[in-house]
Amino acid sequence: MQPLISVITPSYNQGKFIRQTVESVLSQNYPRIEYIVVDGLSTDDTLPILGEYSNRLTLIAERDSGQTDAINKGLRLATGDIVCWLNSDDYFLPGALATVGDFFADHPDKLWLTGDCQIVDEASVPIQQPVRHYKRLLRSLTPSLYLGMTNAICQPATFWRRDAHAQLGYLTESLHFTMDYDWWLRLQTLQPPAILPQPLTAFRIHANSKGGNQYALQFDEDYQTFSRYWSGAPIRFLHKLHNRAITTVYNFVK
């Protein structure tokens, strides 16, 4: 039997993109979906749009202390065998949840999986293809490279068994940029992820993306997160070198 998949969407003032996000979940050709949207009392047209889907999703609209708090609220409400979160400016590709559900049904020993994702702009046009291919290459190698040297896991294309929370707790709410990386590293202590080559989702980069103009803070938090789980000098050196290279490239293209 295919597992019930719970999808959590943390939402705040993404009225420009929220309909595409919601439609991408509700239009999946998968019969067992629980969809929970946790909105922090958006002040744009997000809530009226979400209201149009009130009979097809669970909406929690209340103040929160940020994105990670909203995700945790959804995860604690979830009843699915498999869980994930999909941010309110990203979207699933057609057939994504059927691929995920079939994988977990066929591999009861696997705790979590991650797939590929497209990187798109505001108009959903694919961008940054070299970055995407580079991360795909890293994920074909050892976890010390795709989780140690850097975080090459695509967040919206990552799914795990809900019972992992009984062992590991929930997301670390003090983290604002790298709550996903911290969670991957905690999952990794139990089992490396299964890697799927096919794209499951689209990750959107736009003018108001969280990391767009706060990348220095993001890299600081990234290294602090990394340091909690990796102590070897060689991998620490590689992680620092990799972050420095990315920052240099980012400054150049900016």
Rank of each mutant, 00 (worst) to 15 (best):
M1H: 05
M1A: 09
L4Y: 02
S6I: 05
I8T: 01
T9C: 13
S11C: 15
Y12H: 12
Q14V: 04
K16A: 13
I18G: 11
E23C: 09
V25S: 05
V25A: 04
L26W: 00
L26V: 02
Q28N: 05
N29A: 14
N29M: 02
Y30S: 12
P31T: 02
I33W: 08
E34G: 12
E34I: 05
Y35G: 04
Y35C: 01
V37N: 06
V38L: 10
L41R: 10
S42C: 07
S42N: 07
S42H: 08
T43F: 01
P48F: 08
I49A: 09
L50P: 08
E52D: 11
N55F: 05
N55S: 15
N55T: 15
R56V: 03
L57Y: 02
L59F: 00
I60A: 01
E62P: 00
G66T: 13
Q67E: 08
D69G: 08
I71T: 04
N72D: 12
N72F: 05
K73R: 15
G74C: 01
G74P: 02
G74I: 01
L77P: 05
D81K: 11
C84N: 14
W85Q: 13
N87I: 04
S88I: 01
S88C: 09
S88R: 00
D90K: 02
Y91W: 12
F92I: 10
G95Y: 03
L97A: 05
A98G: 06
G101S: 06
F104P: 04
P108F: 11
K110C: 14
W112D: 05
L113F: 05
T114Y: 10
G115V: 09
C117P: 03
Q118I: 04
V120A: 11
E122Q: 15
E122I: 13
S124Q: 10
V125L: 07
I127G: 12
Q129C: 02
Q129L: 12
V131I: 12
H133G: 00
Y134E: 07
R139C: 14
S140K: 15
P143W: 11
P143M: 10
P143E: 08
S144Q: 14
Y146A: 06
L147I: 04
L147E: 07
T158V: 11
W160R: 07
R161I: 08
G169R: 15
L171M: 15
L171H: 15
S174Y: 06
T178H: 14
D180H: 14
Y181S: 15
D182Q: 07
W184K: 03
Q188R: 00
L190W: 05
Q191F: 03
Q191H: 03
P192Y: 05
P192L: 06
A194L: 09
A194G: 02
A194Y: 12
Q198N: 02
Q198W: 00
P199K: 14
L200D: 07
A202Y: 05
F203E: 08
R204C: 06
I205Y: 15
N208S: 07
S209M: 07
K210Y: 01
G211M: 03
N213A: 10
E221T: 09
D222R: 14
Y223E: 14
Q224L: 11
Q224W: 03
T225R: 10
F226P: 03
W230N: 13
A233G: 10
P234L: 09
I235V: 15
F237E: 02
F237P: 01
H239M: 06
H242W: 11
N243A: 15
T247G: 13
F252Q: 07
K254I: 02
